[in-house]
Design a binder for these strands. Sequence first.
DNA 1: AAGTGGTCTAGACCACCCA
DNA 2: GGGTGGTCTAGACCACTTC
Lengths: 259, 259
Amino acid sequence: MLPLSTKPFLLKHFNPASKIPKYLQIREAVRGLIEKGIVLEQETIPPERDLAEWFGVSRMTVRQAVDELVREGLLEKRLGDGTFVKDQKLSGRMHGAGSFSDEIALSGKRTHSKMLGQVVTRPTEQIAKKLEIEEGETSVIRIERIRYVNEYPISHQISYLPFNLCYPILSADLNVSSLYHHLAQSAGMVMKAGKETIQAIVADDVNAELLQIPVGQPCFLLCRTMYAEQVNRPVEYVETMIRGDKFMFVNQIDGKGIE
Amino acid sequence: MLPLSTKPFLLKHFNPASKIPKYLQIREAVRGLIEKGIVLEQETIPPERDLAEWFGVSRMTVRQAVDELVREGLLEKRLGDGTFVKDQKLSGRMHGAGSFSDEIALSGKRTHSKMLGQVVTRPTEQIAKKLEIEEGETSVIRIERIRYVNEYPISHQISYLPFNLCYPILSADLNVSSLYHHLAQSAGMVMKAGKETIQAIVADDVNAELLQIPVGQPCFLLCRTMYAEQVNRPVEYVETMIRGDKFMFVNQIDGKGIE
DNA sequence: AAGTGGTCTAGACCACCCA
DNA sequence: GGGTGGTCTAGACCACTTC
């Protein structure tokens, strides 16, 4: 039997006269049920028919609310059984072979970084999604740097890391040593795998000034999400703008798979 | 007005008597509309009320189907306006140890090539060097093509092949089938390995016209040298200009080699 | 004004799970 | 068998965009 407190709690967060759509109010009310611990992990929320009756709405409206929480990964429906609160764990299997990085092909050159800013902030919706952070759940560390090769700027990089996983790096001096190195040393995070996309874009005015190039000059935009060994979720999302006039990617093609 | 072909196409992929839920059939039918290029990017799919009438289902059922495609990022709804096919960047893998390519990850898209020219000519010094041809020793085949995805041009490609190794392909129709396929069939050349570089540049006037983009738009320039199993020298050098607004590279990062 | 997607109803029957 | 979620109907009114 469900605790008696669920129904009063839900109704307290619902106002049918409000301009806010009912399904959104219901979604947030049910979310509160979980966040406040009124319904614990592995337990069920009330049946859809009960919710519909309590709120005085149709079952379809309840489903619209609950299904969104299911898609967010907060709830799990089991056919014929009920709707359960999930353990807070997100899946993220990584596979595929191959490696690569933006630091390759710079061998023999002198490199350094300049820190532009390192702040703890609230993630935007996009960043929260990339890091698989529940919206508003927590803070992220935002690190903005310029990387130099032989004294000229080569890339502008903005990294985002979940605060609660990576806060020890806040004490690091990233001017002289690498982010990944410090993540391993101070936060115990060793990067394991990830995914990146590479796009061709032109420099906007901000990047043009930072990279000392004209606006409109071609650049690479590299967006990478990295996973650490220790945790089953992303620990870094980084966007890197790289000068197209000073950098190229090199790829060795090997054997099979060629039509 | 929508092409007449949408309705017949959709109904062909729908069977109300099937045990498969209607909304799933509708979802896949609409997906087919996009993948087959019957509805192109930036265009709208038919209104929900039309779809409901055509399929003989209620509008809620149509919405259940369409909303899933919206969540997948394939469609975008604009209130009061319509449901639009999103402008998606195509992607190509970039395995460090394996295939590459601009031809993968185009699954479900209609692709074809247009031959601009196929001539036997004397190699320039640069091309001769790439193909490891003694200067003036022999001739090369120069093949220039535009590649299309869903009717819009995606890349402009110029391939160079040593004449004495590859002349059988001169009889091939490269409009319909791949260069590598024909090299294998008619010249007995199977591509084995190679090396490619990827640069970010902007379109010049020639490429802008061929790719139907403005001059100055960002592009990738991919330069690749390929070796065949049978011979110990390059058999193809190809330069490919790829539209940056329609294409991105995707790379899976795996384990080691991370600084 | 006409057409679009957004929200919502009050039911219905089904397949599935558990006691 | 009784309760659960899965699918589906045939409407309705609203808010928004476009013309």
